[in-house]
Amino acid sequence: MANKTYKLNTGQEIPAIGLGTWQSPPGEVRKAVYVALEAGYRLIDCAYCYANEDEVGQGLADAFKAGIVKREDIFVVSKVWTTYNTRVELGLDKSLKSLGLDYVDLFLVHWPLLMNPNGNDDRFPKLPNGERDIIRSHNHVDTWKQMEEVLKTGKTKAIGVCNYSKRYLEQLLPHATVIPAVNQIENHPALPQQEIVDLCKEKGIHIMAYSPLGSTGGPLFRAEPVVKISEKHGVKPATVLLSYHLRRGSTVLAKSVTPERIRENLNLIELDDDDMKLLNDYSDKLTKEGKLQRFVYPPFGVDFGFPDKS
């Protein structure tokens, strides 16, 4: 499964599984990236906001130096942070410098809003009352126009979005001269976001799933269908939750800094129709009962158009 790829609307091949680096503690990311590449991962997902791209870059450099991979063998993803949504190229340049790369394979809009670029913090500017310092007059379509310009520079091979709802995609697409290659969203059986997945499939936008285990501590490990399927196949619940995305035709990001778990996360399986029915029935039940679980939703105070949050 480590070698499985999907073809993007750009013609690029994107790996089916990647290493996520969000919330990876300082001092541990460098080794995690190296171990992942050594184990067979070929996609590394990072972002300026994570404040650890320097270490990711060190891990990449270590792997290049050791001859484990060449630059052209791997797929590196970064994201423009919300304080740079009116300065997209600058945001990309900062990430490239940290990563020690000339280009990334995919550059994404991290969230469709603008936090004050002249605020009191480079990443998380706040107002005197403690709320996020957001420029509410900003139109996310303007950020996408800058993304399209950055694509022409060759500093990224493709562009896409993160955390885009159906509503926001429908606002963006009529104005886009380049269709996003990817929409990276929180995705798992407790948050299938089928309306987004279906629209993206229709438009040729590939889904990349983050937080596939739910969140820290793997809250979905105890979900009844996940336990049942893991027992049936003799695998851990994490394997079931990661394999779910391959059956859906999505790329999945597995985040860990533990070498054993990083390697373990590559051991995915083919879920059968009965397995998927159990998981889909579970999703449908949560949807009907209004009990969908979204684990990642920063306190921006913005309605992004997700049905479970609107």
Rank of each mutant, 00 (worst) to 15 (best):
K4T: 14
K4A: 12
T5W: 08
T5I: 00
N9E: 01
T10N: 04
G11V: 06
E13A: 11
G18A: 06
T21Y: 04
E28Y: 10
V33Y: 04
D45N: 12
E55L: 14
Q58P: 10
G59K: 00
L60D: 13
L60Q: 13
D62E: 14
A66W: 03
G67S: 05
V69K: 11
V77T: 14
V77R: 01
T83C: 00
R87G: 06
G91W: 01
L92P: 01
D93S: 13
D93E: 15
K94P: 13
L101C: 11
D105I: 01
L106M: 15
L106T: 14
W111M: 10
M115G: 03
M115Q: 13
P117K: 06
P117A: 08
N129C: 03
E131L: 08
R132F: 06
R132E: 02
I135K: 14
I135W: 01
R136K: 15
R136V: 07
H138F: 11
T143R: 06
W144L: 10
W144F: 14
K145T: 06
E148I: 12
E149I: 00
K157V: 01
G160P: 08
V161G: 08
V161P: 02
E170A: 07
P174V: 01
H175V: 05
P180I: 05
Q184E: 03
Q184C: 04
V197D: 03
V197E: 05
K201E: 04
K201Q: 11
K203M: 01
S211I: 00
P212F: 05
F221E: 02
A223M: 02
K228N: 10
G234S: 10
K236P: 13
A238D: 09
V240F: 05
L241Q: 06
L242N: 03
L242S: 04
L246S: 09
L246H: 08
R248Y: 06
R248F: 03
G249M: 07
S250E: 14
L253T: 00
A254I: 01
P259T: 00
R261V: 12
R261G: 14
I262F: 05
I262G: 05
R263Q: 15
E264H: 11
N267E: 11
I269R: 07
L271Y: 02
D272S: 10
M276P: 05
L278D: 12
D281A: 12
Y282G: 04
S283V: 07
L286A: 10
Y297N: 14
P299N: 12
G301I: 07
G305C: 04
G305F: 04
F306P: 07
D308Y: 13
S310D: 14
S310W: 11
